[in-house]
Design a protein around this nucleic acid. Structure first.
Length: 507
RNA sequence: GGCCCAUUCGUCUAGUGGUUAGGACAUGCGGUUUUCAUCCGUAAAACAGGAGUUCGAUUCUCCUAUGGGCUACCA
């Protein structure tokens, strides 16, 4: 068997922002292409000009860039198979539609939208909810099969609006082998005479996608499960043109976390998590939040997405992009829909945060906070705080005390711990600290423990109190690390301020 | 309604004609910790139902149920 080069495409329509499901489809295409040293193409499917949304295409490209899964062919990216926007390919489709008429696989139809609505309505009245334009009904409609040849000619010459429909044969089994689902067989009696070419001169999705996939030499069509019902039509189309069909893989759907059903953009607001990769603002000014703006790392987002419908068959869950590429195969994609889990997404983010380099984190943090602090100090803050953070911003909300003196002291801790000999112990320990030169965490710990031993008291009688005066809090990282970080001067100053403030508090 | 697809712990999933049906998230309980978080340990938790094939089915087949998708001159 000849091994054709792998070429896959992601084909969104610019009707709005790309949601998570779309991003996952793009991701699987990207992974598959990389895995096989193939090409990942992006093609914009804007054959429905009434649904065009300003900014959507830019949004899609930007989102893919953030996710680090950029295609290498597409609008603005170059490639030998352009243009990659279907509206710019408009003139290419008509000859193919006409070719279908010539070889008897398609026909002209003159029925107006009103005609069709009327017929459907009438059928519904008669108890048939699903009227279809097909081999049974086409004879009673206005088309080049039912109408006399000369009238068809006259109508065409007069410029009557028409569409071109697929002439679906009667009672034929269409078989297609899906890479994920195996053989799927559909009888043509269940398929209708789909419109392939619209009266506005544009092809429908069905025609455009076949023509473009063929012309762009696409080897594998990896798309959402919602396309499975029309896949047999697409197979018929390839046959009608005498083209070799690409391989198909239909991905399971992404489901909403509660109940059932396809994840939709409304679910995000309702349940409090983003459904979009990045923020999207509608023309009306409504903002739909994105993972990027919510503080997620793209690696965590992508890793989470990869596991919704796929797994490597091992217990490894943390996969940077290059390992994803290495491990990904279509045969490990599952068949059933996957419910999205916001908790698991947070877990991935936490894992990625913890694994990230402290200086890198500090650089992100620096952009998010107001104060102007040395990057080395911020990196230390990140080192101390990241074990107890999920997002970069948590590092600051939980750990800003490291760089800013406390202005208040946790009431509960004060009440429970700042009593008895607390002040005396802290004051004594301050004296010791003022005589200490080695402020390494190890030495502070030693000095502290020597003090405890000399007084024959327990750790709980001094350390929580020490934490309180130094940080104002009842919890946090190791006090020895904190003291070391603060340094002698700041430590002494904070003890004095803290003791004073707490004494006032008592009165 | 018709057609198509699917069905293992609450969720994501692994898995096999004979397994104590495994892991992760979340949850409960312990341990570590000055504390919180982390970390470690541990518990509870699943093969939708019914037939059939078979010595034996969670696994194979069929039926039912449930869920989902599609059913436009939308993609």
């Amino acid at each position: 068997m000849s091994q054709k080069p792998v070429r896959v495409r992601f084909a969104p329509s610019p009707t709005g922002p790309l949601h998570m499901g779309g991003v996952r489809t793009a991701l699987y295409n990207y992974l598959f292409a990389k895995k096989h040293n193939g090409t990942f193409v992006i093609r914009i499917e804007d054959t429905d000009q009434t649904r065009f949304v300003e900014g959507a295409q830019d949004y899609i490209m930007d989102a893919m860039k953030w996710c680090k899964m950029m295609p290498t062919e597409g609008p603005g990216l170059g490639g030998d198979f352009g243009p990659y926007v279907q509206s710019e390919r408009k003139e290419m489709y008509r000859p193919y539609a006409e070719q279908l008429i010539e070889n008897g696989k398609g026909y002209y139809a003159f029925d107006t939208a009103e005609d069709l609505t009327a017929v459907r309505e009438q059928a519904k009245q008669m108890g048939m909810p699903n009227w279809q334009y097909n081999s049974v009904t086409r004879g009673s409609m206005k088309n080049s099969i039912s109408l006399p040849q000369d009238e068809v000619q006259r109508r065409l010459e007069a410029g009557d609006p028409y569409v071109i429909r697929m002439k679906m044969p009667r009672n034929e089994d269409i078989r297609l082998e899906d890479e994920i689902r195996g053989w799927v067989v559909v009888n043509t009696n269940n398929l209708d005479d789909k419109v392939l070419f619209k009266s506005d001169g544009m092809p429908t999705y069905h025609l455009a996608n076949i023509v473009d996939d063929h012309l762009m030499e696409i080897s594998h069509v990896i798309r959402g499960e919602e396309w499975l019902p029309s896949a047999p039509l697409h197979v018929m189309l390839y046959e009608a043109f005498g083209w070799e069909a690409p391989k198909f893989a239909h991905l399971p759907l992404l489901l909403k976390p509660d109940g059932n059903g396809k994840l939709s953009k409304r679910d995000g607001d309702r349940l409090g998590f983003p459904v979009f990769p990045t923020n999207w603002t509608t023309a009306e000014g409504d903002v739909f939040s994105g993972y990027r703006e919510n503080g997620y790392f793209s690696g965590a987002f992508v890793n989470m997405l990869a596991f919704l419908g796929w797994n490597p068959g091992t217990t490894q869950e943390i996969f940077p992009m290059d390992e994803l590429v290495e491990a990904f195969t279509l045969d490990r994609v599952s068949k059933s829909g996957a419910k999205f889990d916001p908790d698991k997404t947070k877990w991935f983010q936490q894992q990625y945060l913890r694994a990230e380099n402290n200086t890198v984190l500090a650089e992100i943090l620096q952009k998010e906070i107001e104060g102007d602090y040395p990057i080395e100090r911020l990196a230390e803050v990140c080192r101390l705080m990241k074990e107890r953070a999920t997002f970069v911003k948590d590092i600051w909300t939980e750990g800003s005390f490291l760089l800013e003196r406390p202005t208040e002291y946790d009431a509960k801790t004060t009440r429970k711990k700042w009593k008895g000999e607390a002040e005396n112990y802290i004051t004594e320990f301050k004296t010791i600290l003022s005589e200490t030169e080695d402020y390494s965490a190890e030495n502070i710990e030693k000095v502290f423990k020597d003090y405890l031993a000399s007084k024959e008291i327990g750790i709980g009688q001094v350390l929580p109190q020490f934490r309180l005066v130094l940080t104002g809090k009842g919890m946090g990282p190791s006090m020895f690390e904190i003291t070391s970080f603060l340094g002698k001067e700041e430590t002494i100053a904070r003890i004095e301020i803290g003791v004073e403030a707490l004494r006032k508090n008592e009165e």
